[in-house]
Design a protein around this nucleic acid. Structure first.
Length: 539
RNA sequence: CGCGGGAUGGAGAAGUCUGGUAUCUCGUUGGGCUCAUAAUCCAAAGAUCGAGGGUUCAAAUCCCUCUCCCGCAACCA
């Protein structure tokens, strides 16, 4: 049994969750569920990034006297998002927790002792209004002056003492790791992006301290400073593996699921820190795309096209949202999402194709007095197979899914899975089992084939649409020849099917018990459907 | 000349590396079936593959130029 450690980025709770937060959690959750299904020991970390001056400022602006109180409240909102979305995380980390502060402090000591952290002077454009240095990329230029993008006032050129992480020392190692591990960053575009930037100019050391204004993790030997948020935030992935929440061997992580705006930190800065600590690097940085609005524009407050995840979840079943995020948004690329697109997929692909297939198969069986369907002899089953080309099972199917999941192409796995549904609908129309008499063995053979394939489909669907899978299992239950638990049984069946397909042995196949189904997906009225957020946008 | 991605039937995408009758989904139109959630199945119509030029027997695909859209640009997290 192997382990699988997946993380999301930790959310910065200065504001409310947006649709990207939900998307990222659903992605990570799907991989967690997938590997759990394979029997792996899965660790799934998500959480909140609670340090930084921006939070302190947000708390003050919103009239909170205590930053901690503000942070507690907002972290609760994000925790609630994960709960509402049924995210199967195993640990929720908050960077203000003592366990994290302890690990960060230890890391600081180690890096300081070995000379990877040093004191230096930082100079840049400082804004007294923001009480911080403004990044050169954000500074506005007007009449030869540097202007603060927030306050629109002139910036002051200042220099102050601070602490630096010697990132430059690891330039060659990072570059070498990237060139030798093409698979380190997915997708390709995110990989080349980082690589070209790394090759373009030498790495600069990273300033990792800020003036202590009463919020943040203090620098152990210098209480005048706190640790720069990014430096402590990245370490969150490592924290649970040394603070006892997870076994130590869980590190290195198998995948960090992140958005592209923070790719640099995860693909360059984080490896640098880990190299300095002499720790193995994550196996993969999975950079997902952005959720865009119907017109392909980034959602932003100024455009007024924000879709609130909570309202989305109130308007649509969770599995419908997962379906859109996992299938319609291509893995590693941007994708468009709108209430209309969601409703269309819900009614078409989910209700009409999947929901209706389950319904028509079961109702047909019940009508033919076959509420209990035992497996037939293989000669009878394979007759259906050869004459009507409706196979009991396709051996390449599973290998294909595994391969694609390992390549983080969950969207293509969804395509493969739902191709099953299409094939079964087509096969059923071709064979027309409703015209067969109850007494004909062929009827039972066709129904058995249809049902076992829906059953296996539902088994894999558990990673993607867990609620739907559960409801399919509710109407199709399987009883196995030996009394083993069903999870391992399905894996056994698959193995058996692969190895025994050409033999006559069907003794390992389960008997299916059917129950009259409620609709898996109720239709959504396209006209009346819209999210409150979209109404607000006035579109 | 900062870096990168994109432009393909009405809509959304695949194909581009490794040139060779342009594919899929939705939508539209016609037909079939009646087991099913007015569902499903079959078929048809519809694209000079962003613009221009070049290489080639042959270009969505390779080369050059241009236009438009979108990200990123490391001390904001």
């Amino acid at each position: 049994m192997s382990k699988f450690y997946v993380t999301t980025a930790i959310d910065y709770p200065s504001g409310l969750p947006h649709i990207g937060h939900l998307y990222e959690k659903i992605l990570a959750d799907t991989y967690a569920r997938w590997y759990r299904l394979q029997g792996d020991q899965v660790y799934f970390l998500t959480g909140t990034d609670e340090n930084g001056q921006k939070l302190q400022k947000a708390a003050r602006d919103q009239g909170f006297s205590s930053v901690q109180e503000f942070v507690d409240r907002n972290a609760g909102v994000f925790l609630n998002l994960s709960e509402q979305a049924n995210i199967s995380y195993s640990d929720f980390i908050r960077t203000t927790e003592p366990r994290h502060q302890q690990v960060v402090t230890d890391v600081w000591h180690k890096l300081w002792d070995q000379g990877d952290i040093y004191q230096g002077e930082y100079s840049g454009s400082y804004c007294y209004g923001c009480e911080q240095f403004i990044s050169p990329s954000q500074v506005l230029h007007q009449d030869g002056k540097n202007i603060c993008p927030v306050h629109l006032t002139e910036l002051t050129e200042l220099s102050e003492d601070g602490y630096y992480f010697k990132l430059s020392r690891y330039q060659d190692k990072i570059l070498s790791h990237l060139t030798h591990h093409h698979e380190f960053i997915f997708p390709e575009t995110a990989y080349t992006d980082i690589l070209t930037r790394l090759q373009a100019e030498p790495l600069k050391d990273l300033p990792i301290s800020r003036k202590n204004q009463g919020w943040g993790i203090p620098i152990p030997q210098d209480q005048n400073y706190v640790i720069y948020t990014w430096f402590d935030a990245l370490i969150n992935y490592y924290t649970p593996t040394v603070s006892g929440a997870m076994p130590q061997h869980v590190w290195p992580s198998d995948v960090h699921v992140i958005g592209k705006d923070i790719n640099w930190f995860h693909s360059v800065v984080w490896p640098g820190i880990l190299m300095a600590l002499n720790l193995p690097l994550p196996k993969k940085i999975f950079v997902h795309g952005m959720i865009l609005d119907q017109d392909g524009r980034k959602m932003s407050k100024s455009l007024g096209n924000i879709i609130c995840p909570m309202e989305l979840m109130a308007s649509f079943p969770l599995d419908t949202l997962r379906y859109i995020f996992l299938r319609s948004v291509p893995s590693g690329k941007d994708g468009k999402v709108s209430a209309q697109l969601i409703a269309r997929a819900h009614n078409g692909e989910l209700a009409n194709e999947l929901g209706n297939l389950v319904s028509r198969v079961i109702k047909l069986a019940l009508k033919k007095n076959l509420a209990v369907i035992p497996p037939l002899l293989m000669t009878q089953l394979s007759q259906t197979n050869s004459e009507e080309s409706l196979a009991l099972y396709q051996p390449t199917f599973i290998d294909c899914c595994h391969l694609l999941m390992a390549q983080y192409r969950h969207d293509q796995v969804m395509n493969h899975l739902f191709a099953e549904i299409s094939e079964l609908n087509i096969g059923m129309n071709r064979i027309q089992p409703w015209s067969l008499a109850e007494s004909e063995p062929k009827l039972q053979a066709v129904l058995y084939t249809l049902i076992i394939r829906i059953y296996l489909f539902a088994y894999f669907l558990q990673a993607f649409l867990p609620d739907t899978a559960t409801r399919i299992f509710h109407v199709i239950t399987a009883k196995y020849p030996q009394n083993q638990n069903s999870t391992t049984q399905v894996k056994d069946i698959l193995a058996m099917m692969t190895s025994r397909q050409k033999t006559q042995d069907t003794s390992y196949l389960p008997t299916f018990y059917l129950r009259s189904p409620d609709p898996l997906f109720r239709k959504i009225n396209l006209e009346s459907t819209s999210c409150q957020a979209e109404l607000n946008a006035g579109s």
